[in-house]
């Protein structure tokens, strides 16, 4: 489900410079609306899929958010009552807090680790085997990865806790304690996506021309300042892509929670999408669930917008 949005593309990495190059060129031969007919032909199949399986369901979902609907009956229009109830729903605010916590940990951890790995790969190991090994977790389905870790991290019979005990440290209730539950979820996700994200950043690193580094070394820049002054700014388009996609994907965390803690302990992992699922499908309050989903959508749109604006994702400092 969520894998779709978690697949950032390497192709974007050099999107910025291209765009500006195009901007400079008067598109004499592609002017006006002259291509409309042919464009419609090109876009028709995708449009059909878009309208049928994305647009209409979304509009329908928005409509349902103003109704009381149990899936098995008919929807009944109740105006904005679902939204009023959400504003006063402590579980919604809790879900919002828990989700934000997850997003934050996930982003910091995943981006930092992936960036570090990418630099390591770039500097010492370019072999496909290393990259392949780091990519392996990504080949495992989300649900399976969650179950595997659920079992390995088990307090009583999990191998990880066994190892921890052998080192003389106390066992950790990874999923059971309220402090650990969300970080654990984020760690699992980081495990699965770290290598993949590193590979993307790695591609971005490779795109930086050596002449830039050579210039820096002539200036006598130190390694660390080279990193901050040159590498990082030049990586911006890739990093922005990675961040935007990871943040959006993280907000939609669902499968790992659903197959492991199911919202608990108490409400520690009742993240937004799981709460939506619980209300809509378990408790068959589809109207309320839809209203929650609309809010999640608005949050995502806002976050994406702010990120694009504040990080100036479309431009790279290479120009």
């Amino acid at each position: 489900m969520t894998t779709l949005t978690k697949q950032p593309g390497p192709g974007l990495s050099a999107g910025g410079p291209q765009k500006s190059r195009r901007r400079g060129k008067p598109a004499a031969d592609f002017r006006g609306t002259g291509d409309l007919k042919i464009a419609l032909l090109f876009i028709a199949p995708a449009m059909l899929g878009f309208v049928l399986f994305y647009l209409v369901p979304t509009i329908r979902g928005i409509y349902l958010s103003f109704t009381e609907y149990s899936i098995l009956g008919d929807p009944e229009w109740i105006g904005t009552r679902n939204y009023e109830r959400i504003a006063k729903d402590p579980l919604f605010w809790n879900a919002l807090g828990v989700t934000s916590q997850y997003v934050l940990i996930n982003i910091v951890l995943q981006t930092a680790l992936a960036l570090g790995l990418a630099i390591l790969m770039h500097r010492v190991a370019k072999s496909t085997i290393v990259r392949g090994a780091l990519l392996m977790p990504y080949l495992m389905a989300n649900v399976i990865a969650a179950l595997l870790w659920f079992w390995m991290l088990d307090y009583q019979i999990g191998i990880v806790n066994q190892l921890i005990e052998w080192t003389g440290l106390p066992r950790v209730a990874f999923f059971g304690s309220e402090q650990w539950a969300i970080p654990t979820q984020a760690l699992i996700n980081t495990w699965r996506h770290m290598g993949y994200t590193a590979l993307l950043i790695f591609a971005g690193l490779q795109a930086i021309p050596h002449s830039v580094y050579e210039a820096a070394s002539i200036d006598g820049s130190k390694a660390i300042s080279t990193f901050w002054r040159i590498t990082l700014p030049l990586l911006r388009p890739v990093l922005v892509l990675v961040l935007v996609v990871t943040v959006i994907g993280s907000f939609q965390v669902f499968d790992t929670v659903a197959v492991t803690t199911a919202g608990g302990p108490v409400n520690a992992t009742r993240v937004l999408q799981f709460y939506i699922y619980q209300r809509a499908f378990n408790e068959q309050d589809f109207g309320y669930g839809s209203a929650l989903a609309v809010i999640l959508f608005l949050i995502l749109a806002l976050v994406a917008f702010i990120q694009m604006k504040s990080l100036r994702g479309n431009q790279s400092d290479l120009d």
Binding site: F150, L153, Q156, I157, T261
Partner: peptide
């Protein structure tokens, strides 16, 4: 009895089977 936080994971039956 284990604390509740220790039981989220492999289920109670498996812990019994593990002699815990």
């Amino acid at each position: 009895m284990p604390k509740l936080e220790a039981t989220v994971g492999a289920n109670a039956a498996d812990s019994f089977g593990a002699g815990k």
